[in-house]
Amino acid sequence: MNMVDAINNALDNEMANDKSIVLLGEDIGEDGGVFRVTDGLAKKYGNNRVMDSPLAEAGIMGVSIGMAVMGLKPVPEIQFDGFSITILDQVYNHASRIRNRSRGLYHCPITLRCPIGGGIRALEHHSESPETFFAHIPGIKVVIPSGPYEAKGLLISSIRDPDPVIFYEPKRIYRAIKEDVPEKPYTIPLGKANIVREGKSLTLITYGSWLRESLEAVEELKTDIEVIDLRTISPLDTGTIISSVKKTGRAVIVHEAPKNLGIAAEIMARINEGAFYSLEAPIERVTGYDTIMPLASYEQLYLLNKEKIKKAITKVLSVKG
């Protein structure tokens, strides 16, 4: 399965088992979503469970909150990352704090799905990486899978989670990676990072679509590098990061979002707090630039690549400890 199929399969599995799950979003019904992630689900489960919504992102999130507090488990979709910013008010001022404000009387089980990132030569506002905005909000979990198998397990966990989750799907790898994915439901726990490759000389920390290029870079360098896929951006699995860096003494962090206040900055701060005395070299980060995501003509220049990652690894490894 590719990631589109895996997510579709996860939704199908969960909807078959739990009638309280409803989908809501623009063009997700008959059209199956602009990336076809929800293809066939409206036909199978009906228009009252897979709802084509009017074109209003904040409204989609707002009504999902109303449904969630009344016992449904909405899985709304925002069509593109750039438009997910309009839901910030509802996420920040409501979804994140309903359990807290009501001292547990109400809660808000929503999994908001949205494609993220560049790499498909899309229009303006269609290639953004806004995960930091949501990761900064207490009470919100942010999940970004790195491939089909991961996407299915993490999405099922997100849907079963009793609290709100922002689930960003790296659109660059929607169809680029194929893996064996079980047809039956399975879960991957939220808030736990995955050590994809063990090693002793350096810790590479990444998430989402750049895991693939990171692994390729590591293989080509033929060194003993540990690679961590965060899976969940918030809450961060600091424990896994710290024990790895304590072992390796070196770290490189890779993400597509701009550098300024990106997730890498937070990870560096946590390494500083938890593994400072184990460090043998300054930490490097490979991130997007602190500029507006350029249009297709310069998209590749902005985006990360294997060479940029290799360069950062080589630099950190070259520092004598």
Binding site: G62, P74, H94, S102
Partner: peptide
Amino acid sequence: VFMPSIPVGSQIPHATGAGMAFAYQ
């Protein structure tokens, strides 16, 4: 009665969503 909403008007979509849930149920 849900908790009072301070950001003006932001609770109105919740009333719609709750009403959608009742329709579905």
